[in-house]
């Protein structure tokens, strides 16, 4: 509700924007349009009306896209999802092994190198890195396209379309991966260190297991537990997209759409989007809890 109030407070509401450039629009017309868009009622009233609609399953029509909000979200979210999903897989493949190595070789040169790289990733401003990539890879080397999801003016179908999208996705994925690997790797490292100090690892060594087995069988399995639950919990969030990066690469995903909506004051969309985010978070928590029970035998109810 707070969100609704804020947006309504935004002075440049949609109608005014739309009509600002047009000459000859009478005040009466503005009033008429405002009525149509439901902006004439006071703030609390508007919210109640919206909530009432939501319960009925009607999220309203987006101002900008002139389609039901539900449909808009549904259309755009897949683009964001695939982007984030592929990036996540790559991040995991890179971060977990690095984290384990970093923990087992604590304070060695390897550890320092990996840690530095991780911090680099965390500290990069996404827009800056994206711009750098665009400059070097897209402009200078011309390996990847600059922006967009598909190459304009070419109408690919089927598999070629898939390849084309994939090619366009490369740079944004690189941005996501570099930024995300760092924290995942540190997380793995911290957990691994904690596990390596526990008693059962001592027992495993006392049984005569090789160090390799101790790390990769006993310690690893325990370290996985918090990682799996965290990753599982973040799965739903993959649908929501990243506002800035999508904007730079002009990927038509949910994040980009949300940014446009904000700029234009598209209230139904924003409200729907917010609900969407909340639902995603809830699902994420649920998944995380379920996974925890699957992976950690201590948590299962008998």
């Amino acid at each position: 509700m707070a969100l609704y109030a804020l947006i309504r407070a935004m002075p440049s509401n949609y109608v005014k924007q739309m009509t600002s450039g047009k000459p000859g629009v009478t005040d009466q017309l503005i009033e008429q349009l405002e009525k149509n868009y439901g902006l004439d009622s006071s703030i609390p009233e508007g919210y109640v009306k919206w909530a009432g609609n939501v319960i009925k399953g009607d999220f309203g029509t987006s101002f900008v896209y002139k389609q039901p909000v539900f449909k808009v979200i549904n259309d755009k979210m897949w683009a964001s999802f695939w982007l984030s999903f592929i990036a996540l897989i790559l991040e995991l493949l890179i971060a977990i092994p690095l984290g384990i190595i970093s923990a087992t070789k604590q304070y060695s040169k390897t550890d320092y190198a990996i840690t530095t790289f991780a911090f680099l990733g965390i500290s990069l401003p996404s827009f800056f890195f994206a711009a750098l990539l665009q400059k070097f890879f897209a402009m200078d080397l011309r390996i990847f396209p600059l922006q967009g999801m598909v190459t304009a003016r070419e109408d690919y179908e089927g598999f070629r379309l898939l390849l084309d999208i994939g090619w366009h996705y490369c740079l944004p994925i690189i941005v996501f991966v570099v930024l995300g690997v760092g924290s995942l790797m540190r997380y793995t490292r911290t957990n691994m260190l904690e596990v390596l100090n526990s008693d059962f690892i001592r027992t495993a060594r006392a049984k005569g297991l090789s160090e390799h087995k101790v790390i990769y069988k006993h310690a690893f399995r325990n370290t996985l537990i918090p990682i799996v639950t965290m990753v599982g919990g973040s799965l739903p969030g993959l649908f929501s997209g990243a506002i800035i990066t999508e904007g730079i690469f002009a990927i038509d995903g949910l994040g980009y759409t949300a940014l446009q909506a904000l700029k234009f004051g598209d209230i139904p969309f924003l409200m729907g989007f917010n609900m969407f985010l909340a639902v995603l978070t809830l699902i994420g928590t649920l998944i995380s809890d379920v996974l925890y029970a699957v992976v950690d035998p201590r948590v299962r109810l008998s």
């Binding site: 911090f119 680099l120 965390i122 500290s123 990069l124 401003p125 800056f128 711009a131 750098l132 665009q134 400059k135 402009m139």
Partner: peptide, 23 residues
Amino acid sequence: MKNNLNMWVPPGVMILLTVMAFN
């Protein structure tokens, strides 16, 4: 972006260095 690197690279690098240092 293409021609005037001197305009946007230094501030980006500064952000990176500073945040990294604090981290």
